[in-house]
């Protein structure tokens, strides 16, 4: 979770891209993938994401994300497969539960859709510093600063909370609590109470943060911005590519 959303420091061409473009790219691709029902197009998007990750030097991290999405995708695929009885039957998994060509194709599409739609979002977060994201949201997209700040700060605290949750789980394991059960239902029952310390410590954190913000003039009036985010030729090129991808997805259908 932590790895999927954290900014990775770098100076590649995609790191330097205007954050607005990256934001648009991620959302447009996401939407395009949901619209599209072409295996080929989705594969293309996935490939593009991998290439971008490679050029930006975050391939290792991105592969982790792909792996996580793949596991999730395979689950989705399996479910879809079991609940699509139409089409030519290849074989039966269980008596009365057939695997069909339509089912296979449709479930594969679903899996690809999810992977291709979500990976650009995760990649965008890896390649854009929080602060630039905030600027793009408030200055370009006119999201009120207060709300944009909440979104970005929530993202910023995810690693902190995930570390804290680790500590809490370890503390309970040290007292003989068995959290390493395989049964997912049991696991939820075991883990749920541990959210209480997390909740309480996050409330404490939020209180400190609120006071710290208060003493630094948060939302006292109009706000200036240190970095002007300019558009370069490459930004223009990028936006053209993004639009082209969107059109392509509509064209392919």
């Amino acid at each position: 979770m932590k790895q999927m959303l954290e900014y990775v420091h770098g100076n590649s061409i995609f790191h330097r891209l205007n954050p607005l473009i990256k934001l648009i790219w991620a959302f447009v691709t996401c939407v395009a993938c949901f619209i599209s029902s072409s295996h080929l197009f989705l594969l293309g998007v996935l490939l593009m994401t991998i290439v971008i990750a490679g050029i930006s030097g975050v391939l290792g991290r991105a592969m982790g994300v792909f792996k996580a999405l793949l596991v999730l995708g395979l689950f989705l695929m399996l479910f879809q497969l079991l609940f699509t009885p139409h089409g030519r039957v290849y074989f039966y998994i269980l008596p009365g539960v057939p695997v069909t060509d339509l089912g296979l194709s449709f479930s594969l599409l679903l899996m690809l859709k999810m992977m291709a739609a979500l990976s650009p979002l995760s990649l965008m977060l890896m390649l854009t510093p929080m602060n630039e994201l905030l600027t793009a949201m408030t200055h370009n997209l006119r999201v009120p600063y207060r709300y944009a700040f909440v979104v970005v700060t929530a993202l910023r605290f995810i690693p902190t909370f995930s570390q804290e949750m680790d500590q809490i789980m370890q503390a309970q394991r040290s007292r003989g609590h068995e959290t390493d059960t395989r049964n997912p239902f049991k696991k939820v029952r075991v883990i749920l109470p541990m959210c209480i310390p997390l909740l309480i410590s996050s409330v404490r954190r939020v209180e400190t943060m609120a006071i710290s913000l208060e003493t630094r003039g948060f939302c006292t009036g109009p706000r200036s911005c240190r970095k002007k985010l300019g558009f370069t030729l490459f930004d223009l090129l990028a936006i053209i590519i993004v639009v082209a991808v969107l059109l392509l997805s509509i064209a392919i259908g």
């Binding site: 500590q167 309970q172 040290s174 007292r175 003989g176 390493d180 310390p197």
Partner: peptide, 22 residues
Amino acid sequence: TRTSELARHIGYLFQNPDHQIF
């Protein structure tokens, strides 16, 4: 050996009591 088994031999106090108490 599982941590839950080792817990009978080793008591571990974490740095921040709030991680432990729930």
